[in-house]
Every structure is written in C-alpha cells, then in structure tokens.
Design a protein around this nucleic acid. Structure first.
Lengths: 246, 246
DNA sequence: GAGTGGTCTAGACCACGGT
DNA sequence: CCGTGGTCTAGACCACTCA
C-alpha cells in the first residue's frame, strides 16, 4: 500500500485501520478540505489496492467520529467542525419567542499582558510570555448571559490588535481564521460551578454570591496545538445539561 | 426472514436494520440475558437466512450502543448496563489515597407518601398515588458528599418496606432487582446548579447559600417504563465535568 | 484442535443526486 | 442518463480462547 503522506502506521495493523489513519492525516493536513468531496470509494480502493469494503470500513469510523459526511449519490465530504457538542449549548440561547440565536458580543477589554501561570500552562507557553487578553460579554435580548475571559498567544494573533474591537462581530473563530490564519479544529471543555464574585455579579446583573456555571475551554488547531484558552461564567439558572445513560 | 418475536419491523427496511431491531427486542425481552452469549454469527446467519456480513453489521450497531460486547474466540455477550457515563462519576469518588470507591450510604428517612406533582409527572403516575420516598446521604471517608431524594412507585417496590433500611447496603439497584424484581436498564440525567438551602447545607456540612450541583435522574426498565426518580445535591467544589469537542 | 469473532475480497444489485 | 454511496452475498483466511 502506498501512502501519499509519511504517516507512522504500523504495517501489522489491519488495512482499514491504516487507511483510517491515512485519511485522518489528510483531513488534518488539509489535503482534503472542509466542505469538499474526497475521492470516490472506488478510486480510493484502486489507489490503495484494497477492496471497496475495506475503504468503506475506514470511512465508517471517520463518519462516526464526525470528521466526514456521506451524501448518497453525490459523494463523501469533509465535515467542517461545528462545535455542536459544546457545553455552551446548554445555556438558554433563545430569544423571546424561543428561537435559537447567536448571542450579541461586547468586548469589554483588550490588553496585551504577560501570561499568568494558569494561562501559560494551558497554552503551553512560558510564564510571562506576551498574550492578548480579551474580556467579552455575551447577551441575549440585551440581557447579559455569559462573561468570558479569553487568552491568546500574542505572536500568533498579533493581527487582532490592528482591528477596532467594536468591529469584531459576534463570533471570534471566523475572525481568527480570516485575520490570523489560525483555524480552531477541536476543543476540550471543563464544567464546574461556584459562587459569583462581586465584579462578575455586577456585569452579569445577578446577585453577588449566587451560583454560576464556569466553563473552561482549551481550543486546539488541527495538529493539536493549543491556540486559545477561555474561562466563561454564566448564571446557573440559565443552564441545564442532559445526558442519556445506558 | 422469520422473526421469533412479533416485532413491528417494516419489510422495506434494510435487512441489517431489521436484524438490529430483532436482536434489540431479544435483549429487552430478556430472551438474551445479561452476561450470557448470544448465538454465534454463523447460527444467526442461518436462522435468518442472511449472510454473516449482514448479521455482523446488525451486531456492530448494538456493540457501538453498548448493548452487546464481543470477545474474540469466545462469543458475543449481552452487556450488563454499567452506568459508566453517569454524571455522578464527575464527583470526587476517591478515598484519601485517591482510589476509586463506592460511597457509604446512610438512609435518613423512609416514608410512604402521596406523589407530589413533579414526581407524578416524572414517574408517569397520577398525582397523589402512593409512593415510597427515601432520603439518603452518601459519604466518602465519613465526609458527606451527596444528598439524595428518591421516589418509587409503591405498588412496584412494596417489598422494600419489609427490610430494615440499615440493611439496604450501599447500592440500591441490586436491591431493587433482588427484592422487587425491578431491573434498571437505562437512565436520563439532567444537571443544574443552585444555591443550597439551609437544611441541605447542614446535612452536607457546607455553608448555607454555597453552590451545589443538582442532578435529576429518571431510571427506566428495559421496556422504557419509569421506575425511579431521584434528585441529588452535592457541593459544587466536589464536581468537575469534562468533554471533548470536535 | 475445534470453534469463536476479526479481516478482507470481488462482485452484484439498489437508491439517490445531478445532468 | 451516469456516477455516487448503500446494501448484500459467499466465500477465504487469520487470531484468539478454551478444553
């Protein structure tokens, strides 16, 4: 089997597993780009000298993992990460009539500051290295919902300093991509709860000491490099999280 | 294809899908019992007059859903529900040395009481119908960790009233199975957070008004009947929940 | 060694999407 | 209509478990 990219793949592994790793690398390496079709199953089978069934099994796993999407009759496509499973979706992101919407964003602060210890550890940089720090308030129907503290490595995101924060818009990740060439591919989130401090209580317009949900997110590039770390607070009464257990 | 049990299964569906439904029904109907092997793939293929590949595809889905477990060389087994994905596992269930353990259980109250509105709705019974209500405290290293309010339909769980609560042991579900013949097969959980009331604060030995995680669980039988509803409180500082997002 | 699931093949035919 | 993925088959051989 010939591999177009130098993937460390043990030849004792099953073929479908090696194919899976190869395809996965092509998605990560952006040789197969989001929203574009990958080669047909028959082409892949011929390219790698395996049967179609084996190609299908490799693709099955990537579809199950949400990295590819099959469309019968038209092809198999690289799925753009949608963060559909983020914990944030369990906040009430609805307007007055219950329709889903993107919260309005207000940048409260933008500063260049030396990375404190916790941030440095999360981003994998040295303590004290220069970072961009944003404070952002997110609102639904003019009501404060979430307060976010966002940390970025200055060297990667310098371009952000040249834009007026009032023109950031409501979503940051498209901004990162457009101005800094940094694409967020995945994230890890941690949920905790605590009593809100007086400053955050004022900004969120809730009673001091009332419970808030705290979500920490480390957002990563395609190759697993930490790009952004954020810590978000939101009133606990705006949050409900569901799971099914079998 | 002959079906041993009367499953409503549209014959226009793919064969593997119909097989999946049939197998699923056999697990739910306990014709295939937990920890026992199901017939071999070859036998199933012969029984249903399909090829082994089709049987495998049906089994694949049930394995992915955690209902079956394959053991190469020995067979495919019905998996006993393990509740491994419960939100409760994100509480610190460790002893002093960090080892995982089952919390000690202390039944604080057992009463027969008419179902209040919320309980009746969850259990699918009439408001005011007789229920068994338990209050239970769960402790690690003698430290209170969780406070649980548990509701059961009296008619199904009458046998519980004949046992001394001090002999309940640390786990309820085996008790339900042994004394009442009621088997918990799945559950739905909802996580919220709130400020703790004074009574619960005293029992949990935390400051009044401090944040608590609240987990509501509706536990279901194999055929989807609600059997138990519980509402659990635990100090938020004991809780951390993680997810990966793609 | 007999029997289980695990991998893989090469082909057939179907259902769907676009042209 | 052609090309795509979706279903299904009948077989081969491998890897593992257990007696």
């Amino acid at each position: 089997m010939k591999l177009s990219s130098p993937v460390a793949s043990d030849h004792r592994l099953p073929r479908y597993q090696r194919l899976h790793d190869e395809f996965s690398a092509r998605i990560a390496g952006r040789q197969w780009k989001p929203d574009e079709p990958i080669p047909t199953e028959a082409e892949l089978a011929a390219t790698f000298s395996v049967s179609i069934g084996t190609v299908r099994k490799a693709i099955d796993a990537l579809v199950a993992a949400g990295r590819l999407e099959r469309l019968q009759g038209s092809g198999t496509f690289v799925r753009r990460p949608k963060f559909g499973s983020s914990l944030f979706r369990f906040f009430r992101f609805e307007g007055r009539e219950g329709e889903k919407l993107v919260p309005e964003s207000r940048i409260l602060k933008r500063e260049v500051i030396e990375a404190p210890q916790a941030v440095a550890a999360a981003l994998g940089v040295a303590v004290g290295s220069p970072c961009i720090h944003l404070n952002r308030l997110r609102l639904i129907d003019r009501q404060p919902l979430l307060l976010e503290s966002i940390w970025l490595q200055k060297s990667r995101f310098n371009a952000l300093l040249e834009i007026d924060p009032r023109e950031f818009g409501d979503l940051l990740y498209p901004l990162y991509e457009q101005y800094c060439g940094q694409v967020i591919a995945s994230a890890r989130e941690t949920l905790t709860a605590e009593a809100v401090g007086s400053r955050n209580a004022r900004l969120l317009e809730i009673a001091p000491g009332s419970p808030v949900i705290v979500i920490e997110r480390l957002a990563l590039s395609f190759d697993g490099q930490p790009l952004e770390w954020r810590r978000s607070h939101g009133g606990a009464d705006q949050f409900r999280y569901h799971v099914e257990i079998r």
